[in-house]
């Protein structure tokens, strides 16, 4: 396999050593089928063991390896070096997130938001296991399936200037997941979720940039989830205004 040479400029930030991030260039040869993550691993294993980043599955499903590659949020295990060659590649930590070290961002904020949207099935009454599963037709499944595909990779947050400027914004993935449970025929928890979703940090913060959907590696389409939630929320509100007796 032919080997080509490429330069990678990687963000370094060692909190015990420096006050602000810097950049370090590595030059390396790569075979045609290497992804950016392979190059980082090569550097870590053979050149500089201090380079720090997260990864695990190397098959685009665990959601650990998101980084900015030439300014775009990407899963580095699915970003091929050959697609950037012969230009230099810039690898930075996902933008808008605080940096813990090098390419590792702090995403604890998202975990709080995730919990806040009640990401579980809520029911008034549970059916006993002995009575088997809840029936759900393929069409009912298809209603929410797309929104259940989120791998929590944070690329969409990193593409969202609203999140960048207002970190309180609940953000694309969390809203998409709230939408996923709201659409699930087994769920009755819409009201609990609505309080968070329709709050000032919720859907109305979104100003329709649409980039979240563009960068999502799993085609979750969070922008669609947000817009649909807006429509649904407005319709609910209008209904309750026009027909206050209808809703109890």
């Amino acid at each position: 396999m032919s080997a080509k040479k490429i330069t990678m400029r990687v963000t370094r930030y060692r909190p015990e050593q420096e006050d602000a991030p810097t950049e370090q260039a590595y030059e390396l040869e790569f075979p045609d089928d290497w992804v950016v993550l392979d190059a980082l691993n090569y550097i870590k294993d053979d050149v500089d063991g201090t380079l720090t980043f997260r990864w695990s599955c190397r098959m685009g499903i665990c959601g650990s390896c998101g980084m900015m590659v030439n300014g775009e949020p990407k899963l580095t295990c699915a970003a091929f070096l050959r697609d950037y060659y012969p230009a230099e590649i810039r690898v930075e930590p996902l933008q808008y997130f605080p940096i813990i070290r090098d390419l590792v961002i702090d995403m604890t904020d998202f975990l709080h938001k995730l919990k806040a949207i009640t990401p579980w099935i809520v029911r008034d009454e549970e059916k006993p296991l002995a009575e088997g599963e809840y029936l759900q037709t393929p069409a009912q499944l298809a209603d929410y399936k797309q929104f259940s595909m989120c791998i929590n990779c944070m690329l969409c947050y990193s593409a969202c200037p609203v999140y960048g400027h207002e970190p309180e914004f609940i953000g694309p993935a969390a809203i998409a997941l709230a939408h996923r449970y709201n659409l699930d025929s087994r769920d009755e928890g819409q009201e609990a979720r609505q309080q968070v979703i329709a709050s000032s940090e919720g859907i109305w913060d979104c100003t329709l940039v649409g980039e979240c959907t563009e960068v999502c590696p799993k085609r979750v389409d969070p922008a669609m989830a947000i817009q649909r939630t807006k429509v649904a929320t407005t319709t609910e509100w209008a209904k309750s205004m026009l027909m206050p007796w209808g809703k109890q």
Binding site: W120, E133, L135, T137, Q140, L141, D187
Partner: peptide, 19 residues
């Protein structure tokens, strides 16, 4: 597996709604 279904696992379904 039924417990997981009750917790929301999106098992693929037959036309009649069973897993």
């Amino acid at each position: 597996v039924i417990q997981l279904e009750h917790w929301g696992c999106p098992w693929s379904r037959d036309p009649d709604g069973l897993m």
